[in-house]
Nucleic acid binder design. Structure first.
Lengths: 339, 339
DNA sequence: CTGAAAGCGCTAACAC
DNA sequence: GTGTTAGCGCTTTCAG
């Protein structure tokens, strides 16, 4: 019995009840082999009886491992990141880890403080879809100083010496743009994302695809947005440009969906007059006003692979050379780029 | 200096460097008032210099508080729950808490083990959108046995003596159904959700609204679904019923969106021939094939209020009488129920 | 196979 | 104001 009613059962309680040492009980709990069969079953019986649950805080302090990892994403509401989060969780939970999920709100100061908190909580590893500016290093170097393994997802940072799992953004940009060209578009606009590897890469791919098709576009064909609301506004601006674009490549599905709303509101037909394509293949793309063609990035698998790489890195003592997993993008054709 | 390179700085290190006791440093770190001004500034200086970060695992063990709370939701991919998660995080983070988010996959065994893990990690409190069957008690009684405060959201359980924050599901059902009736529908079908308070309550409200309007419907007007895919299938079944419904009330926005897809695919006009309404006001409702009328439940505010109640409960020693916050539903009319 | 000793890094309670 | 004493509940290490 413990002294205080309602106080959780401890190893000590079980040990006392059974007249064995705390160590023996601890070993049974952790499944160590070097315990006598009879002792083990007595302990096990008592554990079940009292419904003993190890105190993970104490265990973490003593073992110097928390079996907790941190995941920082810019926005959980964006289903792309929700899917990554889910992929991470379902992969890593069966391995005994819990995931602390943080939202950085796309703000690099918030992200930076999240990282510190997670580190202070002694997480065994970190997965980061970072909102840092491309050149910034200090968040990464702080993690590295602590020798905590981490994996970058979605957004790449050359300065960070960490594994990366994500898509090939230039390939995405080329694939989307080429598809519009093949569907007959000649005046292709781009709703560009924030100046991170994702936005920049897709923009570059877009430019490359245009160039290799011998197409040129006015500067006003490139506008900026990040979500459905700003995508809507961006498209409204594009519709005033002369000549009007006949194709729009959106940085991601939300911007593309917002753009479609603006286009349809203006009474312009999709895909007859303007074709639209997005990126991400969010689950509701198929239910939009006009089902949205998109580039699939296998978001769940990004989370899964990041988790797997992280767990391996946690397991091995020495730093391994950072692995890079580039997930090839695939085209999903729906009505918004129909003929 | 610490013995091992790369080992994090400890209170002890700072104390030794400055020839003060560990306690004094600890007090400075925690902002206790009873420290001499000069000592304090010396300590502060050294802390900054060494970039000291308290070890939260050790602190948690000693202080018997982790400043971590657990949040369990059935599905992070469903933006309703993602929004709750965001509401919880943004409310509770500034108060010094971190949130461990878990997905139960709508599976009550998974949920049960999540609860145990979170409890073993000594979370200070729990927020639960539980997938337990309505009568089940044991998850709740396990939490109560540990004396850990918890708050229920979205799904209600009378047997649990915990605060609840959520919508009034019967009111939702009535509001949605009444709206369809007012818009002229007479043959109103319902895509019902799982047999939890949400699904059951909305179904009840639907029945009440029909009854008070003197309408009756065949049993075949009530089908089951949980997400967009099953909503699509459900609607396909409804379309074969004779006489065909002229209104469909979907358990949530995804089911309603899936239903709209099936209806439009069958070449039937929305809202001309069938009007559709959902629940949840997910952020993309406005971008769907036909912008979806819906019932708003203020999901972000559910998360926020649950977090606030939980923090108060954590602060106070004694159990307070469980508070119940019912968020009144509001109607959002869009094109899917247009005249 | 079993257990005693020695912490993990920090804080509560109380002396000085 | 400052420091001392005693842990928090567990694991590591190493001796029996």
């Amino acid at each position: 019995m413990s002294n205080v009613p309602n106080a959780p059962v401890r190893l000590k309680d079980i040990a006392r009840d059974l007249n064995v040492s705390v160590m023996t009980v601890s070993k049974v709990v952790r499944g160590c082999a070097d315990v006598g069969a009879e002792t083990r079953s007595r302990v096990l019986a008592r554990i079940k009886e009292l419904n003993y649950q190890p105190n993970w805080v104490a265990r973490s302090l003593a073992a110097r491992r928390t079996f907790m990892i941190g995941l920082i994403v810019p926005d959980l509401m964006h289903s792309f990141f929700a899917e990554i989060a889910k992929g991470v969780s379902t992969t890593i939970r069966p391995l005994g880890y819990d995931v602390v999920i943080c939202n950085s709100e796309e703000d690099c100061a918030v992200e930076s403080s999240e990282v510190d908190r997670l580190l202070a909580r002694q997480v065994d590893g970190l997965i980061l879809a970072s909102a840092q500016p491309p050149s910034s290093m200090d968040v990464f170097s702080r993690i590295e100083a602590r020798n905590v393994p981490y994996v970058l997802v979605d957004r790449r940072f050359v300065a960070a010496s960490a594994p990366y799992v994500g898509a090939d953004d230039e390939a995405i940009g080329r694939l989307a743009t080429k598809h519009l060209i093949e569907r007959g578009c000649r005046r292709i606009a781009h709703i560009a994302g924030p100046p991170l590897t994702t936005g920049l890469g897709r923009l570059k791919g877009y430019r490359e695809a245009l160039a290799s098709a011998g197409l040129t576009v006015p500067d006003s064909y490139i506008v900026n947005a990040t979500d459905d609301a700003s995508g809507y506004e961006a498209a409204r601006r594009l519709l005033t440009v002369d000549p009007r674009p006949d194709g729009i490549f959106g940085y991601n599905d939300p911007t593309a969906a917002g753009a479609m709303k603006a286009i349809l509101e203006a009474g312009i037909g999709i895909p007859q007059s303007i074709k639209v394509i997005g990126v991400g293949n969010v689950h509701y793309s198929d239910l939009l006003r006009v089902p949205l063609s998109t580039i699939d990035q296998s978001s769940a698998s990004i989370g899964q692979q990041a988790a797997e790489i992280l767990v391996k890195a946690i397991g091995s003592k020495r730093r391994r050379p950072p692995r890079t997993v580039i997930i090839p993008p695939t085209l999903v054709v729906r009505e918004s780029t129909g003929r």
